[in-house]
Amino acid sequence: MATRVLPGGGVPAAARRRRKKLTFDKVSFMAVFLGLPLVIYLVFVISPFAQAVYYSMTSWGGYNNNMPFIGVANYVKLFQDDIFMISVRNSVILAVFLPVITVILSLVLATLVTIGGSSRGQIKGLRGAGFYRIISFFPYVIPAVVIGLIWGQIYDPSSGLLNGVLTGMGFDGLKSYPWLGDSRTAMIASMVVIVWGFVGFYMILFIAAIKGIPAETYEAARIDGAGRFRTAISITIPLIRDNIQTAYIYMGILALDAFVYMSVLNSTGGPGNSTLVISQKLFSTAFAKGQFGLACAMGVVLAALTLIFAGLVFMVNRLTGGSREVNE
């Protein structure tokens, strides 16, 4: 398109801006802050995922260069495998319940230690709130393997702390109850361990978000007669909604994996595969059976479930008004 010339022979300012030459500063800025991160993302994120998709369409054994291409045969085999479908079901169960339980508990605790104190005077948390923060965050600094080993001892049917306490309280029927050895309780017991390990971290995350809400907002709600529950529902949750969404997604991703916790608590997948998750099945398929192509297909399925989960969370947040600003 021809450049429009002004009556005096000049060129419009917009055209001059379009024709402005790239300087070294601009080129170097784009290379460092745009080009370099893009290259790193392509090399370390997109490229491995693309390779995994390709390997999932081969019968690669993992220890040689022989990779016969078999198309979608691995995916057909997966969805005809009853044990794999059980692992998918268990992973979905964890993704549904773990984020809900963890986020709710963390939000309740964060509210108590920040604004759950006396309803008179200055807005503050419960007495000794600092101590509660340290105690609740402590499990997060313990490695997941250690947490699994500790709780494995607590759940021990013969000498575990849990059965000892319950027996001391009069529940004699639970004297030797195998919490991780019964298909009815193995998944619930495993979920308790994961929640215990992460509730403190997300509590600290929500505490930081709540601290960013002006105290005048809570003062106004108190003057209007709003109770603690009403204040949490109408003020706290809407104002830290983005933090809740982020926490929910991260906890959901962890729940879909859960490899370390499940492997330590029940390395074989629990009674009747009741605690078997996709990552456990993937690991055993690759390194115990030497079927790396099939294991890559499991990894692709797990990645797809993770993307679907994150997409659903964003969609629900948008449909429920998360994209709109909170009314003053």
Results as ranks from 00 to 15, higher is better:
residue 143 P to R: 12
residue 216 E to L: 01
residue 231 T to A: 12
residue 151 W to E: 04
residue 209 A to Q: 07
residue 179 W to N: 04
residue 283 F to L: 06
residue 39 V to I: 06
residue 265 L to G: 11
residue 268 T to M: 12
residue 326 V to C: 03
residue 4 R to D: 13
residue 68 P to R: 02
residue 49 F to C: 12
residue 2 A to E: 15
residue 70 I to M: 03
residue 23 T to S: 10
residue 258 A to D: 09
residue 109 L to F: 11
residue 118 S to F: 02
residue 14 A to K: 12
residue 301 V to E: 07
residue 253 I to C: 08
residue 147 I to E: 11
residue 149 L to N: 14
residue 85 M to Q: 05
residue 239 L to F: 00
residue 47 S to E: 06
residue 225 G to H: 00
residue 66 N to M: 08
residue 78 L to H: 05
residue 229 F to R: 06
residue 273 N to V: 02
residue 25 D to G: 14
residue 125 G to F: 01
residue 108 V to G: 05
residue 153 Q to K: 15
residue 175 K to R: 15
residue 106 S to Q: 02
residue 283 F to P: 02
residue 212 G to R: 04
residue 95 A to H: 02
residue 233 I to F: 11
residue 241 R to P: 01
residue 234 S to I: 00
residue 38 L to I: 11
residue 303 A to D: 06
residue 6 L to K: 11
residue 279 S to E: 10
residue 115 I to K: 02
residue 42 L to E: 00
residue 181 G to Y: 00
residue 167 T to S: 15
residue 201 F to W: 14
residue 216 E to F: 01
residue 142 I to Y: 11
residue 126 L to V: 14
residue 27 V to Y: 02
residue 62 G to Y: 00
residue 167 T to K: 13
residue 72 V to M: 14
residue 316 V to P: 03
residue 235 I to K: 00
residue 162 L to H: 03
residue 250 Y to Q: 09
residue 17 R to Y: 03
residue 15 A to P: 03
residue 299 G to F: 05
residue 170 G to F: 04
residue 176 S to F: 14
residue 269 G to W: 03
residue 164 G to C: 14
residue 83 I to S: 07
residue 138 F to V: 15
residue 84 F to V: 10
residue 123 I to T: 05
residue 144 A to T: 15
residue 173 G to D: 11
residue 69 F to P: 00
residue 176 S to T: 12
residue 149 L to E: 13
residue 245 Q to E: 13
residue 317 N to A: 09
residue 47 S to V: 13
residue 213 I to L: 04
residue 149 L to R: 13
residue 147 I to G: 10
residue 95 A to Q: 05
residue 314 F to R: 12
residue 278 I to W: 07
residue 266 N to P: 01
residue 36 L to V: 13
residue 8 G to D: 15
residue 201 F to M: 14
residue 57 M to V: 00
residue 185 T to D: 02
residue 28 S to P: 06
residue 9 G to V: 07
residue 80 Q to N: 13
residue 263 S to H: 07
residue 244 I to G: 04
residue 51 Q to C: 00
residue 37 P to F: 05
residue 87 S to Y: 09
residue 240 I to Q: 05
residue 3 T to R: 12
residue 291 Q to C: 12
residue 183 S to R: 09
residue 11 V to G: 04
residue 36 L to Y: 08
residue 143 P to N: 12
residue 22 L to R: 06
residue 132 Y to L: 13
residue 37 P to Y: 10
residue 37 P to M: 05
residue 121 G to W: 05
